[in-house]
Amino acid sequence: MEQSQKTFEILEEAPVIELRDVNKYFGSLHVLQDINLSVKKGEVVVIIGPSGSGKSTLCRTINRLESIDSGEIIIDGVSMPDEGKKLAEIRSQVGMVFQSFNLFAHKTILDNVTIGPIDVLHKSRKEAQAEAMELLKRVGVESQASKVPAQLSGGQQQRVAIARSLAMHPKAILFDEPTSALDPEMIGEVLNVMTELAQDGMTMVVVTHEMNFARRVASRVIFMDGGKILEEGTPDEFFAHPKTQRAKDFLESIKRHES
């Protein structure tokens, strides 16, 4: 009996990201309420919900860009510390793609991608540059390598940001509304890159308003409102049969908007 349970634990792979009873307040506002979430290797978890639901905050707490007031965040079996070198080290294992790209304005595209591997992972410049060029090719901006961010379109910048994350060989990548700041014609190119990543087996947590992406790519959809996770399920379940009234209302309002 004991033996078989142990085997079971080993077979059941530890989650890459796990949140246990996470609570966060902004002043008196309870923005994250008893959040429990676990993301397995290769899963694509899409978080949706109305603005102000806490979905962005949740995404940012995962690599502690936002602190939490109680609970625990575990990355690949290691509890996320509050500060120090250990925190930086764990962060280097979790990529993050922001709404506003946040490329380093004074560095070339190539340098944006190599700075992490060189400075944090202590790779040689040559090795880092060769790999960076591969990644830039993969996201389709290799011809822009020697330009600076301001010379690129939003869509191109966001793809560079994805390459910058990939260069760290992360265990998972967090996407915080990656297409919200983009012009409509550029949203597709970024979503395509993300879809390819998902197909290649990257573990992803994606906060987005792109319902079609959620339908096609998500292994799981999480619906948040008022700082709580209200629903969790496969995209088919969720979009066809939302259980809560708030999820129904939300999907209804989006449908009206999209049609």
């Binding site: 690599n63 860009l65 070198k85 930086a88 080290e89 764990i90 962060r91 280097s92 294992q93 979790v94 990529g95 993050m96 922001f98 506003s100 790209f101 946040n102 490329l103 380093f104 304005a105 700075i115 992490g116 400075d119 944090v120 940001a161 910058r164 994350s165 760290m168």
Partner: peptide
């Protein structure tokens, strides 16, 4: 934004 980006790739 850029400071958060630096943090998120593991810079101290």
């Amino acid at each position: 934004g850029q400071i958060e980006a630096a943090r998120s790739i593991g810079m101290t």
